[in-house]
């Protein structure tokens, strides 16, 4: 009894030790970003590094919050990410449902097509996209960025929704059909409410993909007042003359913070959604 208890304790101890090691490895860079942002650039270029921000220097944060371009970058990124999320949710509900409920020739082709669409280098794709959107008069709108981010997130989201719907019994729809409900209504009144965790998962996934986008935002938009965060950060902090570590990390903290907060609340939906979706193709 006693040995069993000790073994259990040891095992638990090992779990915590491993968790602690992993945690410190993965969170140290995050912590370092935070500490760096609280010091001035001249302080940073002095050894030894300050492990704790002794002299708080909020200058970099003041600069960012008082700079109107930065607020514009945030606003644009937020609009793009939300727009892409909404678009991706709808499209993948439709497509996932169709792929789950109807077996037809080429349905495997569609799956394969979706997946392989991701396999072409974005770098080359962007050239073709540029002249195409120029012709459609869509350049320099946030709408193209929404479209681009949604399409990046789509393959995974469609697969996830399909698996999710697969796990929902067809009897529910058959019952609704007997009641005379239209197919669209059935989808939205019966199926969608049951798929909330899956929808949450693809929402978070899409939002993060859109938030992370760099190449599309760099190429398809060039107006300063339509810039999104990643290219905006590159413009401001990877400039010609100097490294501004303090400013860059302060911007990074402000760019990441809203996501972190959201994560603390939404993370469990992500796991739930993926669990229910079975995360397989």
């Amino acid at each position: 009894m006693n040995t069993a208890k000790r073994m259990l304790f040891q095992k638990e101890g090992l779990t915590y030790i491993l968790l602690f090691l992993l945690l410190s490895g993965f969170l140290f860079p995050v912590y370092w970003m935070f500490v760096t942002s609280l010091q001035s650039n001249s302080e940073l270029m002095k050894l030894p590094p300050k492990w704790l921000p002794v002299q708080l220097n909020l200058g970099s944060y003041m600069d960012i919050l008082s700079s109107s371009v930065f607020l514009t970058f945030y606003k644009n990124t937020f609009l793009v990410a939300s727009g892409a999320t909404v678009m991706c949710i709808f499209v993948s509900i439709f497509a996932g449902y169709a792929l789950s409920r109807f077996r037809f020739k080429g349905s495997n082709m569609i799956t394969l097509l979706l997946l392989s669409a991701q396999m072409f280098p974005t770098v080359t794709l962007v050239i073709g996209l540029f002249s195409q959107y120029q012709k459609m008069n869509l350049l320099n709108t946030l709408f193209v960025l929404i479209l681009a981010a949604a399409s990046t997130a789509l393959p995974f989201s469609v697969m996830l929704m399909r698996t999710f719907f697969n796990s929902i019994s067809r009897e529910l729809e058959e019952a609704a059909e007997i009641d005379g409900a239209s197919r669209f209504r059935t989808l939205f009144t019966v199926i969608v409410p049951l798929s909330k965790p899956g929808i949450m998962a693809i929402a978070i996934y899409t939002f993060l993909i859109a938030w992370d986008d760099f190449l599309f935002g760099l190429t398809l938009v060039s107006d300063l007042d339509k810039r999104t965060l990643s290219p905006g950060l590159s413009l401001t902090f990877l400039g010609e003359y100097s490294y501004n570590w303090s400013g860059a990390t302060a911007a990074a903290v402000t760019a990441t913070l809203p996501l972190l907060v959201a994560f603390l609340f939404l993370q469990r939906y992500m796991v739930e959604g993926l669990t229910a979706g079975g995360v397989k193709e």
Partner: peptide
């Protein structure tokens, strides 16, 4: 004057793409 802010590292490439795509500054 409308500012097109393009990061220095990608400046040349982006102006070339913009111009080749018919959207020169």
């Amino acid at each position: 004057v409308k500012s097109l802010g393009i990061p220095f590292q990608q400046f040349k490439d982006q102006v070339l793409v913009n111009s080749a795509g018919g959207n020169a500054p």
